[in-house]
Amino acid sequence: MPTFRETPSQTAGPYVHIGCVPTFAGLTGLYPEDLGSGPLYMDGVKGETITIRGRIIDGTGTPILDGVVEAWQADAEGLYNSPAEPRGPADPKFKGWGRAATMEGGVFTFETIKPGRVPWPDGRMQAPHIALWIVARGINIGLNTRLYFADEAEANAADPVLNRIEQKVRRDTLIAPLKDGAYIFDIHLQGDAETVFLDI
């Protein structure tokens, strides 16, 4: 048993942008830029650049307009840009982390690269994926999920996390199709199309 109890979560509230995406709140001049804004990569990054586009949708089918999504992923070789990465340095041109507010129409966007494969603790390889964390008014504890790629069908079929989802129809909620040059990932908080959320 841990000695100290984890600080309990509370909602990020409707004004989360002030602290996390200040320019979206209309708050400029404090920081040089919003942390995590812009592409997750710099010029010269290894790998295939891609666009992720999605919405966060409530239990009535309405996109929410005040959400913030964070993305965390490996580089093209499957290495994380993190001091906790034990296998060696990641591509220095790849940050691996980004943050996006839902903008006009409730749409969030990430400009990133297709991640490489990362091992599962038992040595099997996971399919390429991006970890996503979602906060907003009405969300009491940040929701974790993963984005997988529809054009990685063979890897997806062997993925340890996807295979833990008993119902095939729910597995498909984590797989983003490629449409008009972007991977589309709508996150359904509740209802028939509810996205699989993770207890990590």
Partner: peptide, 25 residues
Amino acid sequence: TSVLRSPRQALLSFSNSLTEATGPV
């Protein structure tokens, strides 16, 4: 606001892989 913004299904639990054990610094 939590009524329409809360999942109804159970969360999927698993032990951390490198994806969850690493993070930005």
